[in-house]
Write a protein that binds this DNA or RNA. Sequence first.
DNA 1: TTAGGGTTAG
Length: 614
Amino acid sequence: MIISHLRAFIKFKGDSFLLPSQNPLSSSRFSPHAALLASLLHSNSFSNNGDRPLSRYQKVANLDDAFNLFDEMTQRRPLPSVVKFNQLLNAVAKMNHFSCSLDLFKQMCLIGVPVNEYSMSIAIKCCCQMSRTNDGFALLASCFRRAVVPNVYIFSTLLDGLVIEDRILEAENFFKKLIKQKLCEPDVVMYSTMIKGLCKFGNNDIAIGLLRLMDERGCKPNVVIYSTIIDSLCKDKLIEDAFKLFKEMVFAKGIQPDVITYNSLIHGLCNLCRWDEVSKLLKEMEEDLRISPDLHTFSILVDALCKEGRVDEAEAVIDIMVERRVVPDIVTYNTLIDGYCLRGEMTKARTLFDSLTSKGFVPNVVTYSSLLNGYCRSLKIEEAMHLFHEMTRKGLKPCIVTYSTMLQGLFRVGRCGAARKFFDEMQAQGLIPDECTYGIILDGFCNNHQVEEALSLFHLVGDSKLNYNIVVYNILIDGMSKCGKLDIARDLFQDLTLKGLQPDVRTYTVMVSGLCGEGLLKEANHLFRKMGESGCPPDGVTYNVLLQGYLKKQNYDDVEMLLQEMDGRRYSLDASTLSMLIDEIAAGSVDRSMLKLIGKLVPKEMMDTTAVPR
DNA sequence: TTAGGGTTAG
C-alpha cells in the first residue's frame, strides 16, 4: 500500500512542476522542462541565506581553502572586519570541523581581532558539539574580560551543550538561573532546547508543562517545539498522545506541520507496524499539504520494512526514491545491508557492500559493523575477522558496537580466548564497555560454561553503575543455575533486592527454571505464586518453564490447572512444552481429556506444522 | 553584516 502510494505519486509530483505558481521563473513562456530546470537552478545555486549569494568566506569548500583564506586575511592591513572572520569560522564549524574552527577563533584572539558575541557563540558551539561544554563555560567567563555581553544565543548554545552531555539537572538549574537572575529572557529556541533535554530524559509531561508555560509567558511555540515533543512521544510509543499534540498544533494553534513533524509520526507508526496509518499519513502530507517525503522519510520506511523482513519492499522503496530524485545516502544503504543480514542473505549484503564504492559512497563504521553483524549471526566468524581487519586497515576506527558485535560472534562459536583478546584490545583503545558489551561478555562466558570468568568480571566491576542493572542479574542467575550452581543463583537473587533492584519477569522465570532444573518443584511453585503478589505476574514463558518442570518430574497433579490458567490469560504453549505434553499423552501419563484444552493453547503458526493427535 | 533549537542506520 505504501509502495503503491509512493509510486502513484511520482506522476503527480512530475505534474506539479508545471504549476506556474510553484516558482516565479516558471511562467507559461517556459516549456515544462525549462521550468523544471529553472526551479532546480534557482534552488541549488543561491538560496542559502535568502537570495543573497554566499560570500567567499562562507563558501570555502574544504579545510585547506579555509586555512589559506584565513592566512591571507591575517596578512591584510587593515585586518578584515570581524564579520568576515566570523563567516569563515562558521563555515568551518558547519563542515563539522569544530576543533579547527576553535583553533581559528584562538588565532583571531591572538592577532587582536575584536571578537564579538557572534564569534563567541560560534566558538562556544564548537566546544559544546565536541562534548566540551565546560570549555564553553570557560569561554563564557572570558566574555566579560572581552567586554562581550553574553546574549540568548550564547546561553542557548551552552544549554544545548549540557543537554548533549546528558547533564540534565545542570541544564535545568542553568535555565532557571538565567530566568531568575534575569540574565536573559528565554526565546523560542532556548525553550526548545530545554524541552529537548526534558524529552531526552523521558520527562514528556514536564516538557508539555514547559510548552504551556512559555505560551503563558508570551513566547509563542512553533513547529520545532511541537515536533520535538511529538517525536519524543512517538519514541516512547505514546502515539495517541503524539497525534493529540499534532492536532492541537494544527487546529488549535494554526501551526503548519513540516516534513520533520511527519517523519516523526511516520517513524512512530512504523515502530508499531501500523502500516495502514503510515500510508494514510504519506498520502495526507503529499496530497493535502504538498509536503514531499525527503531522504529521512524514505530511510525510515526502508529501515522499518527491513526490520519486518520485507526486504523486497525496502528495495522497491529505494527504487522509487531514486525515480523521485531523492538521492539515497549511506544511511539508506546501511539499513538495507542490515535488512539482508537479518534474513541471513549474506551474498546480497556483500554484493551491495562491494558496490557502494562504485556508487560513490564510502562505507563507514556502521556499514562495516552491519556486515560484521551479519557474518557473526551466520557464524561465519572468519569472514567477520577478515572484514574487521579490513576496516582497521582502511583507517576506520572500530567503535563500541563493532567490538560488541565481534565479541558476540566469537562467543557464539565458542572462541572465548579470542573474545577476551578483543575485549582487552577494545579497552586498550580507550573504549569503555557499555551495558550492552558487558551483557554480551557475561552471557558469552556463561553460555560457554565459564561461569567463574563471568563471576570474577562481575566482582571486578563491583559497585559500578554497570552492575545496577537487572539484565546483568538475569544473565548470571540463568548462567549459574544452568551450570548447577543453584546456591550462587539464589544468593544473586537475594542480593538484588538488597541492592534496591526490582526483579522483572525474566529474573523470576530464570529462577523458576533453575529450581525446576534441580527438581525443587515446591520451591519453584512457591516463587511462581509469589510473582503475582510482587506485582510481576508470570508470562507465557514462565508458565512453559514451570510446566516443563512438572512434566520432567512426572508430577502431573497441577498440569491441568496450569494449562487452564494459561488459557485464561491467552498464553500459548511453546514447541518443546507441546512436544513433551504429546509424548505424555501418548504414554498415557496425561489424560486425553486435556487434548481440547491443549489444542486451544497451540499458536496458529504452529498449527500448520504440528500434528496434535485426535 | 556574521551566531543558537526538532526527524534516519549498526
